[in-house]
Design a binder for these strands. Sequence first.
DNA 1: TAGGCCATCTGGTCCT
DNA 2: AGGACCAGATGGCCTA
Length: 226
Amino acid sequence: MAEQNLLKSISNDALLDLTQRYGQSAFGFGAGHGPGAPGRFPLTPATDFLSGQTAKSNESGGEHTSDDEDAFDSLESRKRGAPFGDDKPGGPLAKKSKEQRSLRLSINARERRRMHDLNDALDGLRAVIPYAHSPSVRKLSKIATLLLAKNYILMQAQALEEMRRLVAYLNQGQSLSSPIPAALAPFGQATAVYPFSGSALASCAEKCSNFSGTPSTLFKHCNDKP
DNA sequence: TAGGCCATCTGGTCCT
DNA sequence: AGGACCAGATGGCCTA
C-alpha cells in the first residue's frame, strides 16, 4: 500500500516547489560541462559518498550465502514475474549441464545484487536532492533523479562561485550600501538565479518550456499545453 | 490500450 | 578464471 502511495503522480505544487528550487540554471547551463572536466568540483563529500557506497556494496554482497541467494532469487523471480524461468523444466537453462546452470544462476544473482546496489545508490541520491519527498508524491524515475542531481550540483557550484565573488568584493572594502555591481546581480535579484520564484502567475507549461534540454517525459504531469 | 518505467535474464567484453 | 560492467531483450505493472 505504501508503494502505491509512492507511485501517485507528482502534483503541480510539487513541480512548483521543484522548479523554484532549481530554476533555469538548474536545467539549462549544462552545456560545456561534460564528463571531460575532471577536477572541476573537487568536493570531499563526494569522495566520502563513494567510499560509503563501496563499503555498502561489499556489505550487501556478503549478506547472503550463494544458497540463500538462489532461494531468494527464485522467490523474487516469481514475485516479479521474471520472463525467463531459470528454474523451470522447459526454461533455457534446462538443456544445459548442471555446472553451466549453476554458473548461470550465480551470474544472475550477482547481476541482480549489482542492480540492487545501484538502486540503493539512486535511493540515496533521491534522499538528498531537493524535491517533494511526501509519500503522496510519485518517486522520481531513475533518469529524472540523475538529471535533477546533475542540475542541482551545477546550481550549487554556481551559487558557490557567486558567493566567492561576493566575498572577494567585500574583501576589497566596498560597502554594501553602494549599488550592487552587475556581477553580483543574482544576489540582488533572486529571479536571476531562480526565474520562477517571482512568477506565481506563470503557467505550468511556461515553466516547463524553460527546461530546454530536459526530456519532455519528465513533465508528463503537466496538464497545461504550451 | 499505448507508452513509460522497471526488474530480470542473458551474452559479450574488459579487467584483475 | 572469476567478477564487474554493459547493452539488448522480455515481460509485468501502472497511468493517462
